[in-house]
Write a protein that binds this DNA or RNA. Structure first.
Length: 425
RNA sequence: GGAGAGGUGGCUGAGUGGUCGAAAGCGAACGAUUCGAAAUCGUUUAAUAGUUAACUAUUCGUGGGUUCGAAUCCCACCCUCUCCGCCA
């Protein structure tokens, strides 16, 4: 959420910053609303002050002269009643304004960072660096072909139990998934992250707090009988973990790692990535999350990204780092570095981690603050996948494939998986 | 799901419709005492918003209602605890 005060006092600056996303934002209406609300706030406050004084006076009069039915007293009470009516009228106006402002303001995305490359869409994203040597050859198998030949997962049967875009992992496939989760959690907890295991169902407030609602209700699954949604990413419960808190600056940065299943409707992606592990309604992910001092978030952003990179390097998977351009940034993010892993069968890099600095955008939506010079200040939040498990598995299968049809398991994963090669059962 | 008991400042815990933003205690801060410390004594100490002090407003689980005035009365909801039921 953007700062209401900034909208009220400097709407031109807000429009200018938003327009960096490559679209035109007109905030005239919301600006007017905030100005009117401010006026009403002041009005209400002074009316309340008068009414409070009057009530006190009535109390004193009653104690002074036992007779609590005198003419003067009744006049005073009548006057008090008038205040009450007037105040409630203003409060009604205030309530409506608040609602309107909230509706509008929570649909505005975060300001892009000035450091992010400007551009309209993903074609303007900037490759910052690459790591490793991408495997390039013809006759390379796709991960779903490997999965089938080694009997690692199954999607046809999964549509029987659920629908398309769900998968059942089998035998070594399930084992590899589990190994990857444990490996990543261990790496990150050794590296200073505290592990959380959060609820998979989250309420609407939480989704608003991290920016998925109200704008993207289409992208999550909702429970019909409760105000609960299947969490699309652990970022949601992790943000909500400290909702409405003022965190002692001595505790910052707070670094969490959480494994969670993630549920996404993938509306509008019909026909894309229909095979394999790339785009599923349910997938596993290990998520990194930081709450940090506002002055430290640029540094933190580099660190969280390199913590995610570290996993790719340990798994010996070639990847590149991409600086997401202003037009392609997610709703809550001011700057995002994507890590894209090399998938030899499709001869391209695919997103496997997205590391974002949300500045105070989520913190304001979720009311998470810290004390700076005795003043309450919204802190900064950052999130990054470390990593998406399914896509990691796909990358391991494709990059580790051998001419005999087996798959080499990266050395650092062997203690977790229990053997050096995946072979036909 | 059923029955009961609760939800008040950093914590414990009083609170009768009117100097109640709230007793008392603990804790914390400062001071005195001391070579220093403990103990003792004294003073101070809720938060949030309005850019700041002053000032004003809000806040006793949340949202409504009654009233000139609500921590206190009424209604709804949420949460916690105990017991019962069910259950991985």
């Amino acid at each position: 959420m953007l700062d209401q005060k900034l909208i009220r006092e400097n709407p031109a600056c807000v429009e200018e910053n938003l327009s960096l996303r490559g679209k035109v934002y007109d905030i005239t209406r919301i600006h007017e609303l905030t100005v009117r609300k401010k006026e009403i706030d002041i009005e209400i406050s002074s009316l309340q002050s008068e009414s409070k004084k009057l009530s006190k006076l009535i109390g004193q009069e009653i104690r002074k002269c036992q007779d609590n039915n005198s003419k003067e007293l009744n006049n005073l009470k009548k006057k008090g009643n008038e205040y009450r009516i007037k105040i409630s009228e203003f409060e009604e106006k205030q309530r409506i304004l608040d609602e309107q402002i909230n509706n509008e303001i929570s649909n505005l995305p975060n300001f892009p960072s000035k450091d992010a490359p400007t551009g309209k869409d993903e074609s303007n994203n900037v490759q910052v660096k690459t790591w490793g040597n991408p495997l390039k050859a013809n006759n390379l198998k796709s991960h779903w072909e490997i999965g089938e030949s080694l009997n690692l997962f199954e999607s046809i049967k999964s549509t029987k139990m659920s629908k398309s875009r769900f998968i059942t992992l089998i035998g070594n496939g399930a084992r590899l998934e589990r190994a990857l989760i444990n490996f990543m959690l261990d790496m990150h907890t050794k590296n200073g992250y505290l592990e959380l295991m959060t609820p998979a169902l989250v309420n609407s407030e939480s989704l608003k707090g991290s920016g998925q609602l109200p704008k993207f209700s289409n992208e999550s699954f909702k429970c019909s009988n409760d105000d609960l949604w299947l969490s699309p990413t652990a970022e949601v419960p992790l943000t909500a973990f400290h909702k409405n808190e003022i965190i002692d600056p001595k505790r910052l940065p707070i670094k969490y790692v959480a494994y969670s299943p993630c549920f996404r409707r993938e509306a509008g992606s019909y026909g894309k990535d229909t095979k394999g592990l790339i785009r599923l309604h349910q997938f596993n992910k290990v998520e990194l999350y930081w709450f940090c001092n506002p002055s430290k978030s640029l540094e933190a952003h580099k660190k969280i990204t390199s913590d995610a990179e570290n996993i790719l390097q340990k798994l010996e998977l070639p990847y590149r780092l991409v600086d997401i351009c202003t037009g392609d940034l997610g709703f809550s993010s001011s700057r995002t570095f994507d890590l894209e892993v090399w998938l030899p069968s499709s001869k391209c890099y695919r997103e496997i981690s997205s590391c974002s600095n949300c500045l105070d955008f989520q913190a304001r939506r979720s009311a998470i603050r810290t004390k700076i010079d005795k003043k309450n200040t919204y802190l900064h939040t950052l999130n990054g996948s470390g990593l998406a498990i399914g896509r990691t598995m796909a990358a391991i299968l494709e990059n580790g494939q051998q001419s005999d049809g087996s798959v080499k398991i990266p050395d650092s994963l062997v203690p977790y998986f229990g053997s050096n090669f995946l072979k036909t059962p």
